[in-house]
Design a binder for these strands. Sequence first.
DNA 1: CGTTCAGTTGACTAAGGTCAATTCCCGTGG
DNA 2: CCACGGGAATTGACCTTAGTCAACTGAACG
Lengths: 195, 195
Amino acid sequence: MKNEFRALLERFAPIDELAWQEFASFIQLKTYQKDEMILPAGKTCNFIGFLYKGNTRVYEIVEGIEVNRVFFLEKNFVTEYYSFISQTPSKETIVCLDDCQILMINYEALQQLYAKHKSMERVGRCITEYMYIRQRNKVTNFLINNPEERYLYLLKENPQLLEKVPHYHIASFLGITPQSLSRIRKRLEHVSSPK
Amino acid sequence: MKNEFRALLERFAPIDELAWQEFASFIQLKTYQKDEMILPAGKTCNFIGFLYKGNTRVYEIVEGIEVNRVFFLEKNFVTEYYSFISQTPSKETIVCLDDCQILMINYEALQQLYAKHKSMERVGRCITEYMYIRQRNKVTNFLINNPEERYLYLLKENPQLLEKVPHYHIASFLGITPQSLSRIRKRLEHVSSPK
DNA sequence: CGTTCAGTTGACTAAGGTCAATTCCCGTGG
DNA sequence: CCACGGGAATTGACCTTAGTCAACTGAACG
């Protein structure tokens, strides 16, 4: 279980054995039920989690509209990264899409590890960069692609998402209405299998 | 001149005198002419600059289309931050919109300073966070606002931009065509001053 | 068997994309 | 000083597509 967490971290940079042992000793397993909030808006995110089981949705209320920011799926991280690194209250809420088991490491523990182990700090920095580039890619996607192309991109990058997440959440994530998504899907259906 | 650079940095976190002295000793002044490239795509960005004079544009060629990423204006930073922090080749190109004078500090110097001065490292981390949140805000802007609203947002946040940058660059930055921008401007004109 | 909610569909409107033509502005050279 | 050239900006005509509001379908659940 913990080894899967390690494997994910090491996709960024290697961690030496000693650092990992210490890291592992800080890990806590938490379980949540479907629709439960892992992090409510207004609270500071003090963890980085590994989604051993289940899927989550991160949303923000902007001008009264609920906007889906990101979906963290099984076997990936789950955190509100900005709140975590800056240790300021989150504007976003993380909720479970289904029952979840999450391995968590908290902020204080991680800071200790950063100070103590060069290899951990390197992983941390790489993750920050990764988070940054993800945002950038998303901006690019909005800049050069229309809704249909964004949907196709999502389909290509994250086909599992469509099965795991209700479509109206996907629509919000793509910045369109559920109706539009439905029509886009219909259009594409005709193209791929023109009957 | 250098003090203005310092003031900008200290908007993120205070820098102690000793750290600043050392930082200042590394600063180099470089000058560029209008349309000159400060950083061509493919080269690794090894500097963070302070735009003492002039304005710059950062663009990327995506699927054959030139997409404007950001404009760095006088008295602000100029860098390709992802390339800088990860020390990997930049996908983006930085060009001068007019003649520029830039105070630059290079990567190696900065790393030295980070290792030596806690206050410098703190500033560095805060800047990374700032860059991250900027991208996030831009995503939000695309998610909840249509082109007209994005233009209005830009107008509110960065009114100088409209005077300093040709409109077709603004359009690309907003993710729309120059024609659309022109029509949006016309529409708004009628609203604000109905003759 | 009815309630609820996600998803779809229809009708209509508005807004952006595309292509082409035109105007405006500015610098250059005759 | 004026005419010309070129790029930016605007405008027009047309098309496509997303938004909106409302109705309907269908599946899940009690």
